[in-house]
């Protein structure tokens, strides 16, 4: 895989080189921050390292040409879920500061499980998808008809290609996947009511 990467860099155009350099920078940053999330003793620091991981995931979505998912990632995860986690930390503040109590006694076993899981996954992935290259333009462009000039009458259209996949996602959600979408909205309502009922003081 590494050899294929270098072959791609040496034969590809300059865009690939810059893209790959930034990709590796962000990926290494993400893995370091993720390890800090599960090893740091300070729970507030863990939440802030989690922000780095989530922002890195949004950057990966940008690399993959999924701008809408990246924007949703920033809004929902960094904007809402991390704030919710910080509220949870503040409301349960009694357990802050006891550094020896952040991990249980299963560190060695946990590290073994994680490493073995990664070894199996890495072997399966390298074996199955060795050197498969992503398409150069991964955006899901849709051709839409749009009026070129509003002063013209409405019958004058030109085929334009939109530069993002938002239109394609909207088409998919509201046509083919409308039933799962409605199910998710009912699920969110149920979760909202359930959270209020569970956390309410009697």
């Amino acid at each position: 895989m590494i050899a294929a990467l270098f072959a791609q860099i040496s034969t590809g155009d300059d865009l690939y080189v810059a893209q790959n350099i930034f990709w590796w920078f962000i990926a290494i940053l993400m893995v370091i921050a993720a390890i800090k999330v599960v090893t740091t003793d300070n729970i507030v620091h863990a939440a802030l390292y989690l922000v780095i991981v989530l922002a890195g995931v949004a950057a990966q979505f940008i690399f993959l040409g999924a701008e809408f998912a990246a924007a949703t990632q920033v809004l929902v995860y960094i904007g809402a879920i991390v704030v919710l986690l910080l509220f949870g930390i503040m409301l349960t503040r009694g357990s802050l500061g006891d550094e020896e109590l952040t991990d249980n006694e299963q560190r060695g076993m946990g590290a073994l499980v994680g490493l073995m899981l990664f070894a199996v996954m890495a072997f399966a992935l390298v074996d199955g998808f060795e050197d498969v290259v992503l398409p150069e333009d991964t955006r899901n462009l849709v051709e839409v008809q749009a009026p070129i000039d509003t002063t013209l009458d409405d019958d004058t259209f030109i085929n334009v290609t939109r530069g993002s996949d938002t239109a394609a996602i909207g088409d998919a959600i509201f046509e083919k996947y409308i039933v799962p979408f409605e199910a998710v909205s009912v699920l969110l309502l149920a979760a909202l009511i359930g959270a209020i009922v569970i956390a309410r003081k009697e």
């Binding site: 895989m1 294929a4 990467l5 791609q8 690939y16 893209q19 790959n20 990709w23 990926a27 993400m30 893995v31 990966q60 690399f63 993959l64 996954m121 890495a122 992935l125 390298v126 998808f129 060795e130 050197d131 498969v132 290259v133 992503l134």
Partner: peptide, 10 residues
Amino acid sequence: MLLNQFLLLA
């Protein structure tokens, strides 16, 4: 970009 880069990171 290789597909495996993203899969291994995930």
